[in-house]
Write a protein that binds this DNA or RNA. Structure first.
Lengths: 158, 158
DNA sequence: TAGTTATTGAAAACGGTTTTCATTATCAAT
DNA sequence: ATTGATAATGAAAACCGTTTTCAATAACTA
């Protein structure tokens, strides 16, 4: 199912142009990395991506993966997360194919559950908080992160 | 002012006992590290703490700072944060001397602003979200983190 | 097609954190 | 107080994800 649906190749199709507009060259390694990100709905680490790309393009190096991820992050096409397990995770930025969401993180097994519930209620609170905080602290708020930490069901009973 | 008020020595006074109860020995380096944490209201890195402790106890090593911080974190006496600048930060856990709060993080200068506003509204939303998420995902929620990212006033005009 | 230059891969460097291990200090039992 | 078992320590080395270096290569422009 992972490679079947409508999400496939989204990054390349939708953003290939934007990529060139910014003056960057479209290369084989970059296409491959973008495809992996577009095909997955997981929270991939640089190494995850490297290993997947490596299956089709064994000569693409980990360095290039890091460099491309930084580029895509800076362009706002993907988002970099830190869930506290010592390595950064990347996922598609919010957009037509990616709903606004947050994460539950299991402190024991580090599993990450993505949820999209309560977003309306959240917006209510966030809008007011962002407005108030922006004014009081003269802080131009660009984004937010909400993480819930705890123990997942699999870990609780073992 | 930083060393004057009622917060002084809080960690040692309030938690020294708890510390021994857990079977840990109370040592000079540990007392020194706990004092630094109790005296400060900043978000200290391991190195910050090491440098401060080093002024009074030059033979306390960075390793011991890391080990003590891990211990205190596991005991729930302090909280470890990652604000995305590549080093962990530590602060007193919520309690009589530390109000529930969250953080604004400047993406440019990495400055961290602590705020305690909107906590009531937040609680409203969080309680409902935690309840719903716990049930739906069978996830035992222990805590949460809310970070706002943006550009602080000092960085905006330069 | 050629030339400019962005991009690449391999290896080395980096930096915060953790591990190793012999030494030292703490605490309970005397 | 003294002793003895062992938890805690500091210095150095290891660790590991990430970044930098640099010569070779590939992508776009003219």
């Amino acid at each position: 199912m992972q490679r079947g649906g409508g999400r496939r190749g989204m990054l390349r199709r939708g953003w290939g142009g934007k990529f060139k507009e910014c003056g960057y060259r479209m290369t084989v390694p970059r296409k491959a990395i973008m495809d992996v990100l577009g095909d997955s709905d997981k929270h991939l680490s640089a190494e995850d991506i490297y290993l997947t790309v490596h299956r089709s393009y064994p000569n693409v190096g980990l360095t290039t993966v890091y460099r491309t991820l930084e580029l895509l992050t800076d362009m706002g096409m993907i988002v970099k997360f830190d869930f506290g397990d010592g390595r950064a995770r990347y996922e598609l930025a919010e957009g037509p194919d990616k709903k606004h969401h947050h994460h539950l993180i299991c402190r024991r097994c580090k599993r990450i559950i993505e949820y999209t519930e309560f977003i309306d209620e959240e917006m209510d609170f966030l809008n007011r908080a962002e407005k108030g905080l922006s004014e009081k602290y003269k802080f131009d708020i660009k984004g937010h992160v909400i993480h819930f930490y705890g123990i997942c069901d699999k870990c609780r009973y073992k």
